[in-house]
Nucleic acid binder design. Structure first.
Length: 197
DNA sequence: TGAATGATGCACT
DNA sequence: GTGCATCATTCAC
C-alpha cells in the first residue's frame, strides 16, 4: 500500500481540494475510491481519515490466496475489452496464453493489476468496504496467521510532488512478499507482534 | 537487468 | 491543452 496524507500531501489527489472525482476521499473511512490513471488502469484506494481529512491508502499489490483462475480470467477480460489493439486477429488468444503462464505472485502485483484481477472499475467508487454484505470488503486476518515484517520506502511515480513528499517512506509492504514489485522497500518497522487487521 | 517507449482516457488548469 | 499514483514490449548492454 501507499499512504496519501490529505490535502497538504502534494502527491495526493486531494491537493487541489474536493472535486467531483475525489469527493469520497473527503468522507468517512472505509469507503472505496477508484480512479482511472493513464487512460487505461484503474487504481483502488481505501479512504482512511475522518470526514474532511481526505487521507487514503492506494492498494499497490495483492498476494493471491484463492480464486486464482478467476483472477486470470478477469485479467484477460480487462485487457481484451479495454485495449483497442487487442482487436487485431490473434491478439486476444495470445494474451490469454500469456496470462495463463504468469506465476500466481504476478497476477495482482501492481495497482493496475489489482483492479484488473478483481474486476474492479471506477464504478466501484463509494462502495462500503466495511459492510459484510459488500462484494469487496476488508476482513480481519484469520487467527493463527504468521506474524509479518513490514518494510517501508518512498512512493512510486510521485516525482511531480517535490520534497518531502517524494522521499517520505509512505510505501509499505510485507517483507519478502513475491507479489511486491521492485524496487523492494527497505525494513523500517519491527515485526508485527500479532496478525495485522 | 534496466532504460525507453507506445497505448489510452480523462481530470484538471 | 497538458500531464498523469501504469504496464508490457522492445532494445541495449
Amino acid at each position: 500500500v501507499e499512504a496519501y496524507l490529505g490535502p497538504s500531501d502534494q502527491a495526493s489527489h486531494a491537493r487541489f481540494g474536493e472535486t467531483a472525482r475525489n469527493r469520497v476521499m473527503f468522507g468517512p473511512a472505509g469507503i472505496a475510491y477508484v480512479y482511472l490513471v493513464y487512460g487505461m488502469y484503474d487504481c483502488l484506494n481505501v479512504v482512511t481519515g475522518t470526514p474532511g481529512d481526505a487521507s487514503a491508502l492506494l492498494i499497490r499489490a495483492v498476494e493471491p490466496l484463492e480464486g486464482i483462475e478467476a483472477m486470470r480470467l478477469e485479467r484477460v477480460l480487462r485487457t481484451t475489452t479495454r485495449q483497442r489493439s487487442m482487436a487485431a486477429p490473434g491478439r486476444a488468444e495470445a494474451e490469454a496464453q500469456r496470462v495463463a503462464g504468469l506465476p500466481v505472485a504476478r497476477l495482482a502485483s501492481g495497482p493496475g493489476l489489482v483492479t484488473a484481477a478483481f474486476g474492479i472499475t471506477t464504478a466501484w467508487t463509494g462502495l462500503d468496504l466495511c459492510d459484510p454484505g459488500s462484494a469487496l470488503r476488508l476482513e480481519e486476518a484469520p487467527v493463527g496467521d504468521e506474524p509479518i515484517t513490514v518494510v517501508a520506502g518512498p512512493r512510486v511515480g510521485v516525482g511531480y510532488a517535490g520534497e518531502p513528499w517524494v522521499s517520505h517512506p509512505l510505501r509499505f509492504a510485507i517483507a519478502g512478499d513475491p507479489a511486491v514489485s521492485r524496487p523492494a522497500p527497505r525494513p523500517a518497522v519491527p515485526p508485527h507482534p500479532s496478525p495485522p487487521r
